[in-house]
């Protein structure tokens, strides 16, 4: 029915398209439901992240946070059964992970995978040029300079560039390498999945400094975390509490303080009552 009405008013449809291009939210998640095999993990999430905003999604283990993160990036193991993910107003449902990356989406992995035999430099050169596209390839000298600059930013030794991706990296090195990749690719949206896990306080500070240096009016960030600790270093504008596949509370930074003080128990109870 609604389709008929759009067809009968083509001019209106076009103006709507223009409107989307100019004013759309960076990331808009609408009633998202996600299954792993036959089990529903994400049970209806609505969330909007705009440019320049830092959102934290906090929740206990098993709440579906990581599933949300992987789904946003298009991991093939997860099936979207209902709802939409819009990036810059565009529905990304049919896009593979590489196509999402080219649009400017980035996922910092909770458990970054190692790829033996492939150096960080080789990988990043290929990745940067993939994202820039064939017409805008970065000259090798410029790439090397950029890589050195970002390595320094993350207090990583130059020799890191010659190591194999995440192979034999310590927990801290892996997380720093994720931020290095983010710094090199300069995404519009960074989804950071438990970036603080497994980090000691010094490593956490380096990683947070790295992320903070990348913040700006064009970057939207979705921090996914169990603990409030990370939020001492990266200040969120908005905090959402996720329990059992749903966002059960949203607020400002004070919500994180509340969680730190009282834990998730109260929210879990509320969620159960709601069901």
């Amino acid at each position: 029915m609604s389709r008929d009405s759009i067809d009968s008013f083509p001019s209106q449809a076009i103006s709507h398209e223009e409107c989307v291009g100019a004013m759309s939210n960076l990331l808009e998640i609408r009633d998202l439901h996600v299954n792993i095999e036959d089990r529903e993990i994400v049970k209806g999430i609505d969330l909007v992240v705009n440019r320049g905003e830092v959102h934290a999604v906090m929740g206990p283990n098993g709440s579906g946070k990581s599933t949300l993160a992987s789904t946003l990036m298009g991991h093939p193991f997860y099936t979207v059964t209902r709802g939409q993910v819009l990036f810059d107003g565009k529905d990304v449902a049919d896009l593979s992970a590489d196509e999402r990356a080219k649009l400017g989406m980035f996922l910092a992995f909770q458990y970054p995978h190692s790829v033996p035999g492939v150096t960080v430099a080789n990988f990043l050169r290929t990745a940067v040029n993939s994202v820039l596209g064939p017409e805008n390839k970065m000259p090798p000298a410029q790439f090397r300079a950029l890589l050195r600059e970002k390595l320094a930013l993350l207090k990583m030794d130059d020799s890191m560039a010659g190591r194999y991706i995440n192979e034999g990296f310590s927990g801290g090195e892996k997380k720093r390498a994720e931020i290095l990749q983010m710094a090199m690719l300069q995404p519009k949206l960074a989804v950071m999945d438990e970036t603080d896990s497994g980090l000691d306080i010094d490593a956490l500070r380096v990683v947070a400094d790295g992320v903070n240096s990348l913040l700006g009016p064009d970057l939207g960030v979705l921090l996914i975390t169990h603990y409030q600790r990370l939020l001492n270093y990266i200040k969120p504008d908005f905090v959402h509490v996720m329990v059992d596949g749903r966002i059960v509370a949203s607020g400002g930074p004070e919500l994180a303080q509340e969680l730190e003080r009282d834990g998730y128990a109260g929210f879990i109870e509320k969620a159960l009552v709601a069901v």
Binding site: A97, V115, F123, A127, V131, Q181
Partner: peptide
Amino acid sequence: QLFYLMSRGLSRDVATKM
């Protein structure tokens, strides 16, 4: 591994080759 590389913009084919 494939998803990891693809999430950085590498096509399936390029990621596989890598």
